[in-house]
Simulated assay, not measured.
Amino acid sequence: MAIVVVGQFRLPAERMEEARPMMRKVMEATRAEAGCIEYNYAEDVLDPGLIRVSEVWETRAQLTAHLKTPHMAVWGEERAGLGLTGRNITVFEADAGTTL
């Protein structure tokens, strides 16, 4: 059973240029983790500063381990410094899915 994480957070639009290298760094480190199938941040085209989150993990244990990594601790500090607000993240258990 796959673990799917979806959600969003908001950064001040005027800080996005500063935020992008930080997001890239955490995305690259996370994508290298065991059990990470997908890990994505995407800025909403219609709402600057709104970041959409999507993740897929092999197991909940691997997601839990991810949340304790050093790069996530750094990202937690960085995003707070950027003025992150509106964080709303939900975790789902899902079957293998089918292609549309």
Results as ranks from 00 to 15, higher is better:
Ala34Lys: 03
Pro48Gln: 12
Leu11Ser: 07
Phe9Lys: 12
Arg31Cys: 05
Ile51Lys: 00
Val45Phe: 14
Ala13Asn: 11
Pro21Ala: 15
Glu14Gly: 11
Gln8Met: 10
Ala42Val: 04
Glu38Pro: 00
Met23Cys: 08
Tyr39Val: 07
Gly35Ser: 08
Arg20Thr: 14
Pro12Met: 11
Glu43Gln: 13
Leu46Tyr: 12
Val6Tyr: 00
Val6Ile: 05
Ala34Met: 06
Ile51Phe: 00
Val5Glu: 08
Arg52Met: 07
Ala13Thr: 11
Glu33Gln: 13
Val26Trp: 02
Tyr39Cys: 06
Asn40Arg: 11
Leu11Lys: 10
Phe9Gly: 07
Met22Trp: 04
Asn40Tyr: 10
Tyr39Trp: 12
Val45Arg: 14
Val5Asn: 04
Arg10Thr: 15
Arg15Pro: 05
Met16Ser: 12
Ala42Met: 05
Leu11Glu: 05
Val26Arg: 01
Ala42Ser: 04
Met16Glu: 08
Ala34Pro: 00
Arg15Ser: 13
Arg10Pro: 02
Pro21Trp: 08
Arg31Pro: 00
Glu17Met: 09
Arg24Trp: 08
Asp44Lys: 10
Leu46Trp: 12
Arg20Phe: 08
Asn40Val: 05
Glu28Lys: 04
Glu17His: 12
Pro21Phe: 14
Met27Phe: 07
Glu18Ala: 15
Pro48Thr: 13
Met23His: 03
Phe9Arg: 10
Ala42Asn: 05
Val53Leu: 12
Met16Leu: 15
Ala42Tyr: 04
Met27Arg: 13
Glu38Thr: 11
Ile37Ala: 06
Tyr41Ser: 02
Ala19Ile: 05
Pro21Ile: 15
Ala29Trp: 00
Gly49Phe: 03
Phe9Asp: 04
Arg31His: 03
Thr30His: 01
Met16Gln: 12
Gln8His: 13
Leu11Thr: 04
Asn40Thr: 07
Gly7Tyr: 01
Asn40Ala: 10
Gln8Ser: 14
Glu38Val: 13
Tyr39Glu: 06
Arg15Gly: 05
Arg31Gln: 07
Ala19Gln: 09
Ala13Gly: 09
Ile51Cys: 00
Asp44Arg: 12
Glu18Phe: 14
Arg10Gln: 15
Pro21Arg: 06
Arg31Asn: 05
Phe9Glu: 04
Lys25Met: 07
Leu46Arg: 10
Arg20Tyr: 09
Ala32Ile: 05
Tyr41Phe: 15
Glu17Arg: 13
Glu14Pro: 10
Leu11Gln: 06
Ala13Trp: 09
Arg15Val: 09
Leu11Pro: 02
Arg52His: 06
Ala34Asn: 04
Glu28Gln: 06
Ala29Val: 01
Arg31Tyr: 02
Val5Arg: 03
Thr30Glu: 06
Arg15Thr: 09
Tyr41Ala: 06
Cys36Ile: 04
Pro21Lys: 07
Cys36Ser: 12
Glu38Leu: 10
Leu50Lys: 13
Arg31Val: 03
Met22Val: 14
Cys36Asn: 10
Asn40Pro: 01
Ala34Trp: 01
Glu38Lys: 10
Arg10Asp: 14
Leu46Ala: 15
Arg15Phe: 09
Val53Phe: 02
Asp44Ser: 12
Glu33Trp: 08
Val6Trp: 00
Glu14Ser: 13
Arg20Leu: 15
Phe9Trp: 09
Arg24Glu: 04
Pro12Glu: 07
Ala13Ile: 13
Glu38Cys: 08
Pro48Trp: 09
Cys36Glu: 02
Val6Asn: 04
Ile37Lys: 08
Met23Glu: 04
Met22Glu: 04
Glu14Cys: 12
